[in-house]
Design a protein around this nucleic acid. Structure first.
Lengths: 234, 234
DNA sequence: CACATTAACTGAACGCCGTGTAGTTAATGC
DNA sequence: GCATTAACTACACGGCGTTCAGTTAATGTG
């Protein structure tokens, strides 16, 4: 995926390859059998190794899971950003809808990945408050803030609640203020709500709660996105 | 909880008591240690029994989990309905906000319960498509439809997408049409969207995704509910 | 080249888990 | 008083994450 072309010793290269192979097999098992199928023993079995050997590459199972989440989260955001960028920046509403549809499509195509990111991925796992997963969250947040920023001139009037930069994570604030200077904290708050609004239907659908009530969930989601852009004054 | 006062033999009574004790201890373990703490062995240990004995009361672990979900889902809905009913029916917007706030408050007070209902409760568990869990979902849905029904005269104008009764689960449709005669299928579709709109922020918060971005999530949620009732024309 | 070092890995163990099954105990119904 | 049966235990199986002593193979050094 990302070989930084730095000259490595043979040992380092092999090590990196094994490390990547572990992750790849874990992702394969995730896709095939869901989060539960990610067991160190199963991975090792697949590689012709012993489970203990993995501890030379990842501190423990949770560390590996965190690496997986980081990867999967990254591909989700890549997908969403690509879909967004197919719509010209002159059409902010279209970009928001494109993002939303892409997220849902990805989630339905990779339900296990979605569960890994947004659910209880694996028995005792708790996502660390800091680290790459939080950064992926910030990336998602910043992207949504970009979508909101494009709509902000119109959306501003519809916002009543006030916010302060101090309400938000410092790292996120720094990222957002650099990328979108002049944007007020209220826009960041709004982007979180936009995030949640897209997340709700997708999460309910992926976990099977909506499917028990209705078919044609696509239409439902489209209607929700339409209402969302209307809420933003677009 | 619900002793139906039917005359039972001593055996039946003891049996029911044991069955309830298993569930209660499972709920206790759930609250103390999260979904992972629900193991047949741990429950049996707590009761001074062996794990195998539980199989006399529940077919397997998943059956027990389903019973737990049913219970927990029921208390969530009881809580939300109680909060809703504290607001007079003449204030549909207030009832919707009350419902939403109650659901979030319950979820934050019982995160393990929320995860049990809406997440991956336990390693290999998959909620059955039929049975008490689906019924609880229908109950939630029907209650939300009631909230939407009260706002329908105003909300109707804001709905563009069309729906048909055949788009929905027959049992749910029967329930809704009996309770709210004259209400069109579009209202039911809208209630699902309302559900999802409340679910998004709560789910993200419970799973720690929003907390990594912002403090003061209560204000965020309030703003979202305010926007929701505005979307409904209230 | 030979040697010491060290990284990579195995194999076995520990204590968990869900799930069966054969055998025991105690209450029930006749 | 006795046969039946429900309730339960004891044990076993395979799976899990994790640790650790020991082995093997590659590396760097004289």
């Amino acid at each position: 995926m990302n070989p930084p072309a730095a000259p490595q010793s043979r040992r380092e290269r092999l090590r990196a390859e094994t490390s990547a192979e572990i992750k790849d097999i874990a992702l394969k098992l995730l896709g095939e059998g869901g989060p539960d199928a990610i067991s160190l023993r199963a991975i090792a079995r697949e590689m012709g190794m012993t489970a203990g050997a993995i501890y030379g590459y990842y501190e423990n199972r949770d560390t590996l899971v965190t690496a997986l989440i980081t990867d999967v989260y990254g591909t989700l955001l890549d997908t969403a950003e690509a879909a967004r960028d197919k719509v010209p920046a002159t059409d902010p509403a279209g970009r928001i809808v494109a993002w939303g549809m892409a997220v849902r499509a990805w989630a339905l195509a990779n339900p296990e990945g979605f569960r890994l990111i947004y659910g209880d991925p694996v028995p005792g796992y708790r996502p660390p408050a800091e680290g790459p997963v939080a950064e992926a969250g910030h990336r998602a947040c910043a992207a949504l803030t970009g979508l909101v920023a494009a709509a902000w001139p119109k959306a501003r009037k519809l916002q009543s609640a006030t916010s302060a930069w101090s309400d938000f994570d410092p790292a996120l604030v720094a990222q957002v203020r650099e990328e979108f200077p002049g944007l007020p904290p209220e826009a960041l708050a709004l982007s979180l709500r936009v995030w949640a609004r897209m997340h709700g239907p997708v999460s309910l659908e992926v976990y099977g709660h909506l499917g028990r009530q209705s078919r044609d969930l696509t239409a439902l989601y489209r209607a929700e996105l339409a209402d969302l852009v209307r809420s933003l004054g677009l």
